[in-house]
Design a protein around this nucleic acid. Structure first.
Lengths: 221, 221
DNA sequence: ATAGTATTCAAGCGATTAGTAGAATACTGA
DNA sequence: TCAGTATTCTACTAATCGCTTGAATACTAT
């Protein structure tokens, strides 16, 4: 009978790792690919020491692994099952925590208007050459892996680099934007801006990590 | 940008619900079906007040719902996505927390010897009438739902009621036992005992909640 | 060696959490 | 109405958690 108790205690250790907003944010960044402690601390707005401590908690919970290269230590999620877990967590929060629905409704009012496109559908259209895929994440994240054929224009440079997207002969070609995940605001923003310019733009239903773990093809460099 | 932070804070609320061993145990029982506060407190070995408090935390995280009937309040998981989340948590713990592997190896040394059978395979064999399915959970849980055609013999009564399983004309008929979930010891025990008697017994890979949420047929009463 | 950099460790604080115990609430049946 | 029962609420304590600060470690380049 103590076996059972021990087992639940170990499961709870993984649960604990998920019980803090900053750790979840770190995990989401790690889901994009390998990152150093310093990068992570910047992006999450935490001190380096604090970030390091969170990362070690995640490591004890078996959710991330690390590798040392020279001075730097690079962390990564330790398997696709971790990304699945994050997805399941998100799903429950979205469906059952009314505050999340409220938040999403408040900040992403245009959510339904953006007509998100499912992964499989996008893949088909890419194969048929019907769409231009736009990756609005920072170049480092794009370099670590992206949807095949996607054009990388970080959100901040979108306005200046519009011509990279447009095909003069076919100005109504559809653009599908994606970013880090289903709640990342980058893609929402991009679609809104493109539409302001009269372009036909939609959003991928989720982000790059989900694309990759779904076993769909990816491209690097 | 505060949107993002708020969102992670809400996800963390769900994570917090998963961060305590007792709450996870309560959730596992709830995954079997509806239960009153008193039942839950008994089975988890907690005081009623404490159980009630845990349940309310789970409710605020949107993981359980409740319904009042007369004096009693019945709790239940608020959707199949919650069961998926528990499964994902278990999967990560099993694959990455070495202590879990150690625990399982120590207490369930026979795990591999029991040749667990996957859900789909069992369903086929049941259809072909090749196996006898044995549900070793308590009668209340059996009544709330079980694998079609399964015989219910709680573990404690197994030795006395062996004849309900055996077919005199075909003593080598295979028996597949299942219980609450992949780490519940009931089915392990049952298989071990049946094998001691020279019977051909195996274990279902996971338990009843997983069977049900996989969309496989269930039977009640 | 030495200086510089990335990360981890250790100690300490305020805030949060798990649990207990006892009172309060809500409902049922006599 | 009143007694009995299931659940929830309200303090309260001990333990844990998140974060900060400053020192320690590990590695690189000069």
């Amino acid at each position: 009978m103590s076996f059972k108790h021990e087992l639940f205690a170990q499961f709870a250790r993984v649960g604990k790792a998920l019980s803090n907003a900053n750790r979840l944010e770190l995990l989401e960044f790690l889901a994009q690919g390998e990152r150093s402690v310093e990068q992570l601390s910047k992006v999450a707005g935490l001190t380096v020491a604090n970030t390091s401590q969170h990362l070690q908690q995640l490591r004890h919970a078996g959710m991330v692994s690390c590798r040392k290269e020279g001075l730097k230590v690079y962390y990564r999620v330790s398997g696709d099952d971790v990304i699945d877990l994050l997805g399941a967590l998100r799903a429950v929060a979205e469906r059952h925590v009314t505050d999340v629905q409220h938040l999403v409704a408040t900040y992403l009012t245009v959510k339904d208007d953006l007509e998100p496109i499912p992964r499989e559908e996008l893949l088909e259209r890419v194969r048929d050459g019907l769409v231009t895929v736009l990756d609005v994440r920072p170049p480092e994240e794009y370099a670590a892996g992206h949807v095949p054929g996607a054009v990388n224009i970080p959100l901040g440079e979108l306005e200046q680099r519009l011509e990279e997207l447009g095909n003069p002969e076919n100005e109504n070609r559809e653009i599908v934007a994606y970013c880090r995940g289903p709640h990342c605001v980058l893609a929402f923003d991009a679609v809104a801006r493109l539409r302001e310019r009269g372009m036909k733009a939609r959003r991928l239903e989720d982000g790059y990590p989900e694309w990759r773990t779904a076993g769909l093809p990816v491209e690097t460099t």
